[in-house]
Amino acid sequence: MAIGGITAAGARSGARRRLAMLLAPGLFWLIAFFAIPLVVVLAYSVAVPGPTGRVEWRFTLENYQRLFGETLYVSAYVRSLWVGLLTTLICLVAGYPLALFIVRQPPAWRAALLFLILIPFWTNFLVRTYAWMIILSNNGIVNTAIQSLGLPRQILYPGEGAVLVGLVYGQLPFMVLPLVAALDRFDFTLMEAAADLGASRRRAFWRIMLPLTAPGIAAGSVLVFIPTVGQFVVSDLLGGAKVDFLGNLLQRLFTRSNPPNWPLGSAMAVIFMVVLTVAIVAYFRATAEERR
């Protein structure tokens, strides 16, 4: 490689310099505007909230104590995790047959179906949530249909049902895409082999297809679960801001409450991250077990 006067060592130091140049801006940005802010949250979470919303830099664990002591916060955690779980489950139950149908189509149809599933998600997600407000509103389409059947008008929005509909709507493709990828790698002749050996279709599904597509289920579930637990817009708009989810409390503690309480909000975010990490690690362990 040594051309002209360039020695091997010279070339190596040139490569080092090039590498440093390539890394410098990205490293700077990710450390300054991603890693350090996360450390700042950790620092805020053990600081004292001042009376005017200013943070006082004295060490305390009171924020964490408050989170575990007050029902408002505990129930927001429980509700967010529960609704996150429910959304994930609904997406899985609705998404699995859909993915199954897609992978069994001829290639051209498959591509078209995948495209059809993705198109609605190229619109702004606020707009998609807004569309459900229209559909579920008192004089909206669903209520018009209900009334034309002679049934009384239902209050569908705002409410928890509306929140669930909005969440499933927003997350479904994140479940379907990994499932399609997993089912794509699945060897369907295994099902025939199982049938030949006398297994019922149901048994073959539970014992063969489900365990072998577990990585797709795991990936899809994590992709659906994380944003659902942290969301605040869907519950704010479709839930009418009546029930508090984790995201709603975080948003209020940081931007709206009078005075704002950043230390408490930060403690909440830290616990959120810990709970989420534990849940995901446990989930991957469990699905790995399933595969064995």
Binding site: L30, F33, F34, A35, L38, V40, V229, G230, A269
Partner: peptide
């Protein structure tokens, strides 16, 4: 390490990143 640092922003809940940036800018 960099590989990990690159993946975290993809999986982290958006609201955590958002409020971390708000807290960071204020500080």
């Amino acid at each position: 390490g960099l590989e990990a640092l690159l993946y975290v922003p993809i999986v982290i809940p958006e609201i955590v990143m958002a409020l971390a940036l708000l807290g960071f800018f204020a500080l």
